[in-house]
């Protein structure tokens, strides 16, 4: 529902954005924090053994450099079985394992020791329904001339399913992320559409024949949904009619020094991955 109404608010803003320009602004600088990108996604039809966790630090807002974190200790534990998966430092900010055992509905704990401080996070692996159809059309979406992709799936019967979609077109620098839940569509066959609006200012082209779109669809926990929902809302910047931006908190707790919390998230999900070539 919200997913439909939010664009409307964005559209109010579109009408107003007759005159936007890029300006120099002084911003405050927070202490630099550990950033955790620990996304253990179990792609359907694979073993899910190979997993990567990336650690970086945050940077001042206008800096363009990225700083990798090396020398951390990274482990993931299956809470029920007590099985521990060690992630090896690749000295480039990534930590990898090839022995991860994914299990639906299992809860996992991430533990990171970095700079003498210990961070922990927990998440539960949620299932994702199969994609039953992908097709293209122009009828729907904001622009009835632009091509949009449709992903069809049937929401699980029980209420409380949450989804994350990621759409990537290789020629674009940034992916599109969307969240969904079944609050208003529980148990229904869902047709989820994705469209790129023509934007002459930013030189973004709508979907055109020949374009490849890589799609991933994750079954996610409610708390991760809440996190991503805010992250996505604030991603492109926050306009006048959108909620005042907030500092979104992930699930990585610093148990040594709680004020020095980490950014990012530890998620475990079941995932569909597909590619679609626009005709």
């Amino acid at each position: 529902m919200k997913n439909y109404i939010k664009p409307i608010i964005a559209l109010f803003t579109v009408i107003l954005t007759c005159c936007t320009d890029v300006i120099d602004v002084d911003v405050q600088t927070d202490t630099l924090r550990l950033v955790v990108e620990a996304s253990l996604d179990w792609e359907k039809g694979t073993t899910g053994n190979d997993q990567v966790i990336t650690l970086r630090t945050s940077t001042p807002f206008f800096d363009t450099e990225r700083t990798n974190v090396t020398g951390a200790e990274v482990n993931v534990t299956n809470n029920a079985t007590g099985e521990v998966f060690r992630f090896t430092d690749q000295n480039d900010g990534t930590y990898t394992t090839s022995t991860f055992q994914p299990q639906l509905f299992a809860t996992y704990t991430l533990e990171i020791v970095y700079n003498g401080e210990r961070y922990v996070a927990e998440d539960t692996m949620n299932p994702v329904p199969n994609i039953t159809d992908i097709y293209q059309d122009t009828e729907d979406g904001f622009d009835d001339e632009a091509i949009e992709l449709h992903i069809v799936f049937t929401d699980f019967e029980d209420e409380g399913d949450n989804y994350l979609f990621k759409f990537e077109r290789p020629q674009d620098l940034l992916p599109t992320l969307e969240t969904g839940d079944d609050e208003f569509i529980n148990g229904n066959e869902v047709d989820w559409w994705y469209e790129i609006d023509d934007d002459e200012d930013e030189e973004i082209k709508p979907l055109l024949p020949g374009d490849v779109v890589n799609i991933s669809m994750h079954g996610i926990s409610r708390s991760y949904f809440n996190y991503m929902d805010i992250v996505i809302d604030q991603m492109g910047g926050v306009g006048i009619f959108e909620a005042t931006p907030v500092d979104v908190r992930g699930n990585c707790i610093n148990t040594t020094n709680p004020d020095n919390y980490a950014h990012g998230y530890f998620r475990v999900t079941e995932t569909n991955r597909v590619s679609y070539t626009v005709e």
Binding site: V27, T29, E37, P60, D63, K166, L174, L177
Partner: peptide, 11 residues
């Protein structure tokens, strides 16, 4: 206003 940034999900 923002007071920092971090990379996550390619963004």
């Amino acid at each position: 206003y923002p007071n920092g940034q971090y990379e996550y999900e390619g963004v």
